[in-house]
């Protein structure tokens, strides 16, 4: 017997539901790998490149007890960096769907996301817009 991997569809998204992820500690290895892969570097030694925590929060979103969102397209986002992050800091993310708009093929959702450090400070935050699949009939 085979079961299709579960996916979280437009209909499953709960408006204003808050999702909190597990945390991850930012290491030299992350900074080195990210720098080698992208060519993007931190401004000074010990700091974490600003876009790296954002990239890691996407992966943290896969570690919550909920199937992955059936994203058809990542349409865009706005992002604000509030505080610098250093190697050794531990971050997690908190997100909330604030807009849900049904379309003919799928639906648009807007998710507000915060990146939070080990002291509970919001270090980065913003809004993501995704096109999400509807549950197959």
């Amino acid at each position: 017997m085979s079961l299709a991997a579960p996916r979280f569809y437009f209909e499953d998204v709960v408006l204003h539901g808050v999702l909190e992820t597990p945390a991850i500690t930012l290491t030299e290895a992350h900074v080195g790998l990210y720098g080698g892969l992208t060519g993007d570097a931190a401004r000074e030694h010990g700091l974490v490149p600003d876009l790296l925590p954002l990239c890691l929060t996407t992966g943290l979103g896969w570690r919550v007890p909920q199937p992955p969102l059936a994203v058809l397209a990542f349409m865009g986002f706005e992002w604000v960096v509030d505080l610098p992050l250093r190697v050794g800091d531990t971050i997690h993310s908190r997100s909330k769907t604030t807009i849900k708009r049904s379309m003919r093929d799928g639906g648009v959702i807007v998710e507000e996301r915060q990146v939070i450090n080990q002291r509970g400070e919001v270090v980065q935050h913003g809004k993501f817009t995704f096109l999400v699949a509807k549950r197959p009939a």
Binding site: T38, G39, D40, A41, L51, L52, C55, T58, F74
Partner: peptide
């Protein structure tokens, strides 16, 4: 990944 493209352009800027 969209964010890979974003990160690569940040590297290309340098």
């Amino acid at each position: 990944h969209g964010l890979l493209g974003l990160s690569i352009q940040a590297g290309l800027f340098t």
